[in-house]
Design a protein around this nucleic acid. Structure first.
Lengths: 123, 123, 123, 123
DNA sequence: GTGGTCTAGACCACC
DNA sequence: GTGGTCTAGACCACA
């Protein structure tokens, strides 16, 4: 797990997105218990309050819920998880496509470029 | 031209990106003169200082240059413009592709989704 | 019986209120014997300690009393029961009325709205 | 303005509700600027962070929005304001009515009690 | 001066 | 030990 942040955006936002990815991609399974706030915070090397805030926002979105004293759990609602996954993907695709159009690329050109990137190393 | 901003990122950054797009996509032609800071600022409904800052950063990148008394001009260097265009595109493609991989989408799935978005309305 | 809880308030408080309602509304008759802590706890799917605490507080208020060996009983004092019932009702009415006033509703408007809700389904 | 809190619920929740009432009842007019976080915090005698949190939640609900550096403003959307007002009222009425039913009061009895409370002093 | 973020640390109710 | 709240205080980017 990477847990590295850029300074452009708030840390809690980046935490939120990272954990959301872990849930959406199934690495935190539906219904499973998350590590405690303190554990996650120390693992990510942030203040527990910061992690707390990220989790609180995730909770508000419904992806996780907290059980008063026993910990936090991923929602069991697989439909919600996959629908969030899809809506995030849709949003990313749409905005990506728009940005490329603004740069003056047609759909075909975008496709070509995407194909070229196929073997690219990742970060 | 839209000129609407979100509160997540500094306005001057958003201005910078918008103007850069205008140059890269050719709507501000190479060698042409930009509107004055005041004009641009009032058009975008921002503080002239903010617009000034955006232009200053653009100038630093070499995309525009200022002529002492007569104003600011887009660079005549078409090579630079197109190379910036391409590097921005490459970067967007790469990060987009990475993000989709994190969401668990394969290249083929991304392609399919992109094709589906074909007829989507734009903003 | 529902026995479902929200996370905003302590569970033992919610248990307490629910049982108090059962007594006040007569579903646990004056002088009758309550189910054992274990029974109640398993029925409500909570930890026996939690149920215990709820009952202890109820006992303190005088609504129930415990008989050394034979269990807990609802008080025979019908006057006390009905007076508690009325004071709770008064309190609810008063605070409800105040809240509606804060929202800017006159007494007449409240009455109208209450009449409209007449046929509403309940949870 | 009262600004007194009970210990049962988080302070930021109570702050949120109080400010929401001020907006909904029109005491903070649509489009008007709110006092700064620091002002509000000192007025309510709470830590600025606590006030900040309350305002952040209000912002998320759409009732207020923050202008990067100039302050926070009440939404201009009067429709939203009045619809929130009504939904809060509906919710209060419904739950009040339900609670009274649980206590064993019929609609007519509730009406009578409400009428009696007519001249009651408030807190 | 404005909103916003982050840290450090303490304290609490709950189970 | 769990989540949660609150404080105090520092710091930052922004307009």
């Amino acid at each position: 797990m990477s847990w590295q942040f850029d300074n452009e955006r708030p840390i809690y936002t980046q935490l939120l997105e990272k954990i959301r990815i872990l849930i959406i991609s199934g690495q935190y399974a539906p219904g499973s218990r998350l590590p405690s706030v303190r554990e996650l915070a120390s693992e990510a090397a942030v203040n527990p309050n910061t992690m707390q805030r990220a989790l609180a926002e995730l909770e508000q979105s419904g992806l996780i819920y907290s059980q008063r004293t026993s910990g936090r759990y991923v929602t069991e609602d697989k439909i919600m998880i996959s629908s969030i996954r899809e809506s995030i993907a849709q949003e990313k695709i749409h905005s990506f496509y728009e940005e490329m159009k603004h740069l003056g690329y047609s759909r075909e050109e975008v496709m070509n470029l995407l194909n070229k990137d196929k073997g690219g190393s990742s970060t």
